[in-house]
Design a protein around this nucleic acid. Structure first.
Ligand SMILES: [Zn+2]
Ligand SMILES: [Zn+2]
Ligand SMILES: [Zn+2]
Ligand SMILES: [Zn+2]
Lengths: 165, 165
DNA sequence: ATATATATGTAATATTATAACATCACTTAC
DNA sequence: GTAAGTGATGTTATAATATTACATATATAT
């Protein structure tokens, strides 16, 4: 089981995490022989800023604060598509929003834990889930290609019961 | 494991299925002491017409063919919300579309098998999936409330390999 | 019959996403 | 170094999905 949950739910060095993610992204782009342009990198950074997913127009607003020229929707969406295709970013369909992937270029379950209170999203990957879904779909003759699993609930920080004790 | 896959993927008496679904809906509404108004029923019927999900504006167009007065988006969305709240209809987030639930008012996994070729959607419910996701989220302290699982691939009728033999 | 709650009508608008075509910028070939 | 070619972004307009706010109508209860 692979997850960034601990990281998301506990205090951590956000700058270090972000730098690591960007560095990894550069490697992945280099390997794929594609370019991580300034706009693309800026958007990826925003999607790693916090652990809340951001919508396209929210990204646009944030970019406006940094850049001089306002960036129009098509550019935003193109950059998002680029990042998603590379596996660096995921789309959270139920929120029409996007978030950085904590473990790109590895096996995936695409399981997202969405906190209904603070909106943080943590990701999990677990082979057992993939195996089970594979078995279930096999049984009815459905050939499974990909999946997205969106879980709604409360993160440890928002759960009244409480977290560490 | 509960599924309407066989039904969806094989020829069947569509009229009988639809009537059964509507009849069941009437029961559920009566039990909940809410009204299945003509508009709501018409929309539910459309969402049971085939096994393809329909978008809000697609529903609007279809309703226009039946009804005399065109029905505006708010009414459509209200009816959809009503049906979803009752568990009679699901939203397929990745498609911005809606589909009738084959087994309302029972335990749910909300697993949708979406055919990338013919767009049919079949639903599955499997306690093991819920248990596994519960276990996974428990481990990281996330309190799971609800979920939606969207699977993409090819239904038996669209898979080149083939179905029955 | 009146009051109350529920459902729908209506008009305007918000939000999310894409199409079509022009321009710019980087890479490669010569 | 320049030209050609590819990839990325700019620009304008618009499509597609969804909601707000307020008015009216319909059903239910007293
Ligand atoms: Zn991921
Ligand atoms: Zn939270
Ligand atoms: Zn269902
Ligand atoms: Zn199919």
């Amino acid at each position: 089981m692979l997850t960034n949950a601990r990281l998301v739910y506990q205090p951590h060095d956000q700058v270090r995490i972000l730098n690591a993610a960007i560095s990894r992204a550069h490697d992945i782009c280099e390997a794929a022989n594609v370019r991580l342009t300034p706009t693309r990198e800026a958007i990826l950074k925003l999607l790693w800023q916090g652990h809340q997913p951001m919508g396209a127009y929210q990204l646009q607003q944030q970019l406006a604060k940094v850049s001089e020229k306002p960036i129009a929707p098509p550019t935003i969406y193109r950059a998002i598509e680029f990042l998603i295709d590379l596996g660096l970013v995921h789309r959270i369909h139920s929120l029409n929003a996007y978030i950085g992937c904590p473990f790109p270029s590895s096996e995936h379950s695409n399981i997202f834990m969405i906190c209904e209170k603070c909106n943080t999203v943590a990701e999990v990957s677990d082979k057992r889930v993939n195996n089970l879904l594979e078995a279930i779909t096999d049984k009815v003759g459905f050939k499974l290609h990909s999946q997205t699993i969106e879980l709604f609930g409360l993160c440890p920080n928002c759960e009244p019961g409480d977290s560490d004790e």
